[in-house]
């Protein structure tokens, strides 16, 4: 009896908070990759095309539909997917799913994200298979890629850095996965060592700018903040759509304290020369 009560209590404690999870999903930009790019598309029902040098990925349906979505998953399945990039059946996920960043999300936040995903209306929209160039269709190749470039493990605050910078580092590196676009990649699609946030070429020919102080120091905090809230620079220049979406889904949705922490962290990065385009 007593044991039963204790077990119940610990289950209730361990359960995630969907409201917090909703905020974390914004900070992680989950909706963009998991929702079709057309007006009126069902949120989180999948279908977004993600073009990469290896082919086109389609974000899957992550609503709790038992067949079309992840309705049959357990919380442990979800945590393993995010932390280790492994499917419930043991196959490896492609890093187009930014789990190399999400692995750093701490346990409680993963539980809250899971609670939020469980609260979504289930959608029967079938996930579309990826269309990858030979030989990237083989998931087993991802194993080698992970061996080279993937370091699993949740974020550990740096005691020498203070709470605000640690919060900023967490928002940028774990949830925000800003480096997925702003850190240059080598020919195997792995992040270039020592070149974090130096700017990168992106699929389709465009590129992302350097986020280290080398470039960012030319703008004051107000300008950076306005950009991250509106996607528009003081001269009226409109950000390329991939960043504009990050602004709509993520940076403009952060609490003022979180946005300040994020900017403070970018300012604290070691300055690096721009990545040659």
């Amino acid at each position: 009896m007593l044991v039963g009560l204790l077990l119940c209590a610990s289950v209730a404690l361990a359960q995630g908070d969907a409201k917090r999870g909703e905020y974390l999903a914004k900070a992680g930009g989950c909706v963009g990759c998991h929702t079709e790019a057309r007006d009126g598309a069902t949120r989180y029902a999948g279908g977004r095309a993600l073009k990469t040098p290896f082919g086109t990925f389609f974000g899957p349906n992550i609503t709790p539909h038992p067949q079309a979505g992840i309705g049959r998953w357990t919380e442990a399945d979800f945590i393993r997917a995010m932390r280790s990039g492994v499917r419930p059946d043991g196959a490896h996920y492609y890093p187009a799913f930014p789990y190399p960043s999400f692995t750093r999300i701490v346990d409680q936040d993963l539980r809250d994200l899971w609670a939020y995903l469980r609260s979504l209306p289930p959608s029967a929209r079938a996930s579309r298979p990826h269309e990858l160039r030979f030989p990237f269709g083989w998931r087993s190749l991802v194993w080698g890629w992970k061996l080279l470039f993937f370091k699993p493990g949740s974020f550990a605050p740096d005691p020498g850095r203070g709470a605000r910078l640690n919060r900023g580092a967490y928002l940028v590196n774990a949830l925000g996965h800003c480096g997925e676009c702003h850190t240059p990649r080598n020919f195997l699609g792995g992040p270039k060592k020592g070149r974090e946030f130096a700017g990168a070429s992106l699929a389709g020919g465009g590129g992302s700018p350097n986020l280290t102080p080398t470039r960012l120091k030319k703008k004051d905090d107000g300008e950076v903040k306005d950009f991250l809230l509106t996607g528009i620079t003081p001269d009226g220049d409109v950000a390329a759509e991939s960043m504009a979406e990050v602004v709509r889904n993520t940076t403009s949705q952060l609490t003022p304290q979180d946005l300040d922490a994020l900017i403070a962290y970018l300012r604290s990065l070691p300055p690096l020369p721009d990545e040659p385009k």
Binding site: G206, G207, A240, E241, S242, D274, K277
Partner: peptide, 9 residues
Amino acid sequence: YHENFRQKQ
């Protein structure tokens, strides 16, 4: 438009 046709920097 900027996404597909402009190089930032």
